[in-house]
Design a protein around this nucleic acid. Structure first.
Lengths: 197, 197
DNA sequence: GTGTAAAATGAATGCCTATTCATTATCCTA
DNA sequence: TAGGATAATGAATAGGCATTCATTTTACAC
């Protein structure tokens, strides 16, 4: 079987898992139901994933890779820490707001156990936090931001704000677009890092 | 059996559940193991709780009630929105940092399903966010804070920062005290709401 | 078109554990 | 202290589902 089909099948399984897990929750979603939606046999899942939990991990890995790739691309074209930080806020809200199923998984289902979250956190989210911290460090060094900021701590704070907005959006049933909050959220984030004039 | 003993037994079950769930995670913790640690029979659990999930919910309810009670008490003695907001930050970090087992549950295990989180969020966390929003509104009205703040959104941002600090503390194995971050975190939070002078 | 390897299938297996409920112990009143 | 209620017990039940693997299908080279 060609490389392409193989790739497609794996993708199909991940897409199916995203839909089902978002609707039923990780623990209520059986491997059988994922297989059915993906149009493969139950056993086929295990040709592509070691076990059920690895599906969840791959799901998130794939999403975060895309997320970070797009982020880097957008950031490259910008100069100045403030512009970059604004772009991060905008991008975060836009990308999370783009796919509610995926958002449900990243904001809720992913956090289903300490062990799992620890692994994920170190390996993946750490990269993202690192990018934010770098931008803040750049701003501190260049005098755009307050000089007494600890970039690592400030990055966590920024991430906390964005993550809470995302979770709130997922939990609220109102049908507003997450992006719509970008201007206000950006203002709050910028206030955290701006020098007191 | 006296009212007191009954209460004690329920408390014992909740305490046992806190320890076991923090160590193994909600799904790996069997009702039998909670019963054993609490020193009761498996069936006894069901005299006090409708089912396993209700144990988790009660656990959190009890903790948040204490949390909010202590918060209100501390806040009463203070005047001025800035002082209150500072107190909230300090209190949040102090109380979460006081009990790591409980923190593991609130920051990780509690968020194990969308349905569960939705209920919890509306019923309980909403109260807490409301208190923060009130304080911010007071500060806006009194000119202590920026007048263009939306108190509800700003409260979410503040909560996001605090929640992320708590989660980070739970996931990091380093043995620092969470309270130690209070001054820096307070600075970040105050920066969000302070008027641009 | 035949043979071999790779991929896919899905029924069967085996494990796990929440919850129930018949039985036993304890409490309390008169 | 009798006996009716209330509380506690824990073995048995019942259902659920991840994972395996013997078998079948497909791909492809010669």
């Amino acid at each position: 079987m060609a490389r392409k089909d193989e790739h497609d099948k794996k993708e199909r399984i991940l897409d199916a898992a995203t839909m089902e897990i978002a609707r039923r929750g990780y623990h209520q979603t059986t491997v059988a139901v994922i297989a059915r939606r993906a149009g493969v046999a139950d056993g086929t899942i295990y040709l592509y994933f070691k076990n059920k939990e690895e599906i969840l991990a791959s799901l998130f890995g794939r999403a975060l890779d895309r997320f970070i790739a797009e982020g880097r691309r957008k950031l490259e074209g910008l100069s100045g820490a403030e512009a970059k930080l604004r772009a991060i806020v905008e991008l975060h809200l836009t990308l999370v707001g783009q796919d509610r199923d995926l958002a449900i998984i990243t904001q809720v289902e992913l956090r289903h156990s300490l062990h799992f979250l620890e692994e994920l956190s170190r390996a993946k989210v750490g990269r993202y936090l690192g990018i934010i911290a770098e931008v803040i460090a750049e701003g501190v060094a260049g005098g755009e931001f307050r000089t007494d900021l600890d970039p690592v701590l400030a990055a966590k704070a920024v991430f906390g704000v964005l993550d809470e907005m995302a979770t709130d959006w997922v939990l609220s049933r109102r049908n507003i677009r997450l992006e719509a909050k970008a201007p206000e959220v950006t203002a709050l984030v910028m206030a955290m890092v701006r020098p007191v004039s």
